[in-house]
């Protein structure tokens, strides 16, 4: 006797619903998004006040400062990635759902990027003005942040998944993530510096894009495995 084909809920539909749910939660509680963004703006705005307004000094240090601020802002937002889901039990429901957990992990990363990475990219031109960056440099800054924050969201979700069961896992999360985030920081900041100096930027952008691709292919599975361990 042939068994009837087993049916499963659609993966793409579930992923879309998860992203939609997380976005509507952010709309209800905008503080989670605004805090890291505020941090980014504050660091970037205070730095010129501390080192002085000389144009060349600001143009020289701008890319590095903005990238460090962006990295720390991303770290700040990562801790809460799975925490609420863990505490209210909805993470458990994802674990016992027939929808593959890696798809759900990807959905969480996408929602995280849309609410933390993308806003950072959008406000960066405003902040770049403080550093008297030219239009071309600002463009490259946005491009590197765009590629870099994708990597950071995906990479960060692995760390967030590993530390979700721990109380006060923030320090551990940073320790886990930072070494792997270094290439993003170095290539991101250097690429912006290079374009400011009039050099080519293609190499740096390619690297950032390649790193983002690597993360897209690894992170969902690593995050899913980490979530199963954290939920024991």
């Amino acid at each position: 006797m042939n068994e009837p084909e087993q049916q499963y809920p659609g993966i793409a539909a579930a992923l879309g619903e998860l992203v939609k749910r997380d976005l509507s939660l952010v709309v209800k509680r905008p503080g989670d998004v605004l805090n890291p963004l505020f941090f980014f703006g504050m660091v970037a705005a205070l730095f010129p006040l501390a080192v002085g307004p000389a144009a060349e000094q600001l143009q020289f240090s701008g890319p590095g400062v903005l990238w460090v601020a962006a990295l720390l802002a991303a770290l700040l937002s990562l801790n809460s990635l799975f925490l609420a889901d863990f505490e209210d039990g909805s993470l458990e429901q994802l674990l016992v759902s027939p929808v593959p957990l890696s798809a759900m992990a990807l959905g969480k990363s996408i929602a995280h990027w849309l609410t933390s990475g993308l806003p950072l990219v959008i406000v960066s031109p405003v902040v770049a003005m403080t550093y008297q960056m030219s239009l071309a440099v600002t463009g490259v800054l946005m491009l590197t942040l765009l590629l870099g924050t994708v990597s950071l969201s995906l990479l960060g979700s692995i760390g967030a998944a590993l530390t979700v069961g721990l109380h006060r896992g923030t320090a551990l999360l940073s320790l886990l993530i930072l070494p792997l985030a270094m290439p993003v920081l170095i290539f991101g900041a250097r690429t912006v510096s290079l374009v400011a100096a009039g050099d080519g930027v293609a190499g740096g952008l390619y690297f950032l894009a390649a790193y983002a691709m690597l993360m897209i292919s690894i992170s969902p599975f690593a995050t899913a495995a980490a979530l199963r361990i954290s939920n024991e």
């Binding site: 049916q7 809920p9 579930a14 998860l18 509680r29 039990g89």
Partner: peptide
């Protein structure tokens, strides 16, 4: 396992995408 900020219907609609 529900989201306190969302309504009952929104919660159940999301859940319905997870199962047949």
């Amino acid at each position: 396992g529900f989201k306190g900020d969302l309504t009952l219907v929104d919660n159940l609609r999301f859940e319905s995408s997870l199962r047949l």
